[in-house]
Write a protein that binds this DNA or RNA. Sequence first.
DNA 1: TTATTATATGACATTTTTATCATATGATAA
DNA 2: TTATCATATGATAAAAATGTCATATAATAA
Lengths: 126, 126
Amino acid sequence: MIKMSYNKPDEKSISLFFRAIANIKRFRILVTLNEKGPMCVSQLEDLLDIEQSDLSHNLKCLLNCKFVNREYRGKEKVYSINDYMRGLINSINNHIGTYENYIKSCDILNVKETKNSNKLGIIKNR
Amino acid sequence: MIKMSYNKPDEKSISLFFRAIANIKRFRILVTLNEKGPMCVSQLEDLLDIEQSDLSHNLKCLLNCKFVNREYRGKEKVYSINDYMRGLINSINNHIGTYENYIKSCDILNVKETKNSNKLGIIKNR
DNA sequence: TTATTATATGACATTTTTATCATATGATAA
DNA sequence: TTATCATATGATAAAAATGTCATATAATAA
């Protein structure tokens, strides 16, 4: 039973919210849906070069959290970004832009890459 | 060389930004500094019941990202929340509150707990 | 000076998250 | 019906994040 009325969110919800958006692939999906409009999974696959099953798993997360909406079009599923998320993405740009270089230099979040690892998972798949 | 002028942030910065705040302990530190005002590490330790070295590691992350500021007071270090973060925390409350139950039911983010694990790390330490 | 208090750091084990593979489901076309 | 296309799911290996311990540093007190 899921209720829709407003509640002051608890810590668990807030943490989940940020964890959902903190994933770079999920974030790229949101940005793409924001900039290019609604599209189906295989279009996202082509644009983002992310494995189909990987995409589906991440879309499920975004859908569960209501960051995206889904419509059925025959055998395709068309995903679109939730209006709130669109606004949020814009509103944080200024802050992150200003402090970008500090954030990037955080040695708690960043780990040096070794030949076999890409701790941030950001460069590959691009 | 860290520059302060505004840039449109890249994906890496955005991902780091959210990963910094997605950690429940770091988020609780921010909330505490927001609600109770500036305080030193040992005060946070008492209030939040987080290990001293764990706190220091997480404070370093928050400081690196400029989510908090630090002042010296004798041998104590006094941390305070950055004004932007204060606003952000409030602005997302409505959205998360509305969709809280959806977010909580996301089975990509949530993993069932077993006797030896607390995957979310949320209940313990309270 | 040495002792004490407060905080920070490095190493690394533990826990959690992510990526990938094999397979399932569901819609439509042949 | 069977074949094909589009997407979803479950299991689990690989990678990354977190927690903890031992120890370092830095300020002040004795």
